[in-house]
Design a binder for these strands. Structure first.
Lengths: 229, 229
DNA sequence: CGTGCAGTTGAGCAAATTCAACGCTTGTGG
DNA sequence: CCACAAGCGTTGAATTTGCTCAACTGCACG
C-alpha cells in the first residue's frame, strides 16, 4: 500500500486534487510541471514511501531530506538501488508495479504526483513526454553506472561513491552523508566494516577528512579519481 | 532532440530505405512496426554493432545469433551489460549517445531501425510510444536484476545466470550458450576460472550436465533456484 | 601432425568477510 | 545529575572466498 497510516492518507488526496492542472505552456520543464501537479508530504526517518510490488500509481520528487530504494533477498541481504537527494525524481516506472521499495533516510518532504495525470498530460504535450523520457534515461544511466561500481575493488567503490556524492552535493568539497554506514555498504555491495576501513585508509592517505562520521571533506579529488580506476 | 544526423556507417544506409513505412494500424505491436521500418543486416562473430559514445541514431533487434553490450574500464577490465538473443531489442537510448558498446557474439542477423523514424511515429501513434516505454522499462528491469546478481556469491551468480538463460531459451532444460566463458565471467563479475569451477561443482552435484562446454542441461531446477538465494 | 584457442584443474595468495571487542554519542529512567 | 543501555562506528584477528599464476587437456584448423 502507498499510504501507511491515517495521518498521511489525507495528504495524498491533496496531490490528486491538483492532478488536472495544465502547465503554463508547451515548453514547461518536467520540474515545473510536477510542482503544479503534486503535493508535498512529510515522511519521517525510516518511513516507507512505497513497497516492492505495490502498484506504481504515483511518482515522487524529493523536496528535502533523502530517500533510498532497495530490495531484500530471501536470506536478508539488502541491496540499495539508489539514493535520492533534493530535486531527484524517483518511483517513475513504465510497468504497473514498483520494482524496489523506497524509504526516507532522514525526515523528508516529498512531492507526490499521480502518475496517470502526468501520463495523460504527456499524451497531449510532447514536451512533457520528452522530459519523462529524459528522466527515465537518467535513471537507466544511473543503474548502469552502479553496475560498473560493483565490479570494482572495495577501495575503488568507496572512492567512486564519495565522488558521486560530491558531484551531487552543492557545497564544494564538503559532503554531508545523510545515510548510515550500513546504507553505504548495502549500496556498494560491501560490509560496514570494509566501508569503514576504506574510509580510514583514505583519511590516513590525506585524501579525505572525516570531521564527523557523516561529514566528509575531499582533500584530494584527483587522487580519488585515480583510485576509481 | 528527435531529429538526428545521417548515418556514418555506410552499410546502415539500407535501413533508411524502409524508414517511411507505416504500420498496419494504431494497435500494431512494436515488434511488427520494427520489422516494417528496419533492414536485416549480417554481422560476423566479434563484429562491432556500435561503439560507446557513438550517436544513438539507430536501434536494433536480433533476428538470429547473439549480441553483447559492454564497457571497458581504463585498466582493461570489461563489464558486459547484457546479452541479447533472437527477438531482443537493444541500443534503444533516450540520450544522444550509446552508453555501451555492442558486438555480435556469433555470426548474426540484426534488424537495424532508424531511431528518428520510430520516434516520429511514436509522436503520432500513442500505441507505438507505449511500446517504446515498455521496451525501455524491460531494459531497466534487466539492469536492476543484474545488480542483484552482482552482490551474490560466485555459485549463486552462476546458478542465477543459468536459470536466466534457460528462461530465455526455447528448448526446455537444454540451454545452448552462444557466449564464451570469458563473456560469462565478464557478465557475472567473476574470472573464467571461477565460472568454470562453479559449473563443475554444479555438475558434480548432479544439478546440471555439461555435454559440451557450450551446452548445459538443467537436471535439477529447484536445486538451482535454491542456490540462487 | 603440430599450433593455437577455449576450457579445466590445482596450489598459493590476496582481498574482503566474519566474529569479536571496544569507544563514542544519545536518550532514558532512577 | 548520574548511571546505564542502545545504536552507530571503528578496529583487530581469524577465516573464507575468489583471484592469480601455472600447468594441462581437448578440439578445431591449418
Amino acid at each position: 500500500m502507498l499510504v501507511h497510516n491515517a495521518a498521511q492518507m489525507g495528504t495524498v488526496r491533496q496531490a490528486e486534487a491538483h492532478a488536472g492542472h495544465r502547465p503554463q505552456g508547451g515548453k514547461a520543464a518536467l520540474a515545473g510541471t510536477m510542482e503544479m501537479m503534486g503535493a508535498a508530504m512529510p515522511f519521517s526517518r525510516n518511513a516507507e514511501v512505497y513497497g516492492e510490488n505495490e502498484p506504481a500509481d504515483y511518482l515522487y520528487k524529493v523536496v528535502s531530506g533523502a530517500v533510498r530504494t532497495y530490495k531484500v533477498l530471501a536470506d536478508g541481504r539488502r541491496q540499495i538501488g539508489a539514493f535520492y537527494l533534493p530535486g531527484d525524481v524517483f518511483g517513475l516506472e513504465a510497468g504497473e508495479e514498483h520494482t524496489f521499495s523506497a524509504e526516507a533516510i532522514a525526515d523528508s518532504k516529498i512531492l507526490v504526483i499521480k502518475r496517470s495525470a502526468l501520463m495523460a498530460l504527456a499524451d497531449r504535450d510532447n514536451e512533457v513526454a520528452r522530459q519523462l523520457w529524459a528522466e527515465a534515461s537518467r535513471e537507466l544511466r544511473c543503474v548502469q553506472d552502479h553496475i560498473l561500481l560493483l565490479i570494482k575493488t572495495a577501495k575503488e567503490r568507496v572512492a567512486a561513491f564519495l565522488l558521486e556524492m560530491a558531484k551531487r552535493s552543492t557545497n564544494g568539497n564538503a559532503v554531508e552523508l545523510p545515510m548510515s554506514r550500513q546504507d553505504i555498504a548495502d549500496y556498494l555491495g560491501l560490509t560496514i566494516e570494509t566501508v569503514s576501513r576504506m574510509l580510514t585508509d583514505l583519511e590516513n592517505a590525506a585524501t579525505i577528512e572525516l570531521p564527523t562520521s557523516r561529514r566528509v571533506v575531499l582533500r584530494n579529488r584527483s587522487a580519488l579519481a585515480r583510485i576509481c580506476g
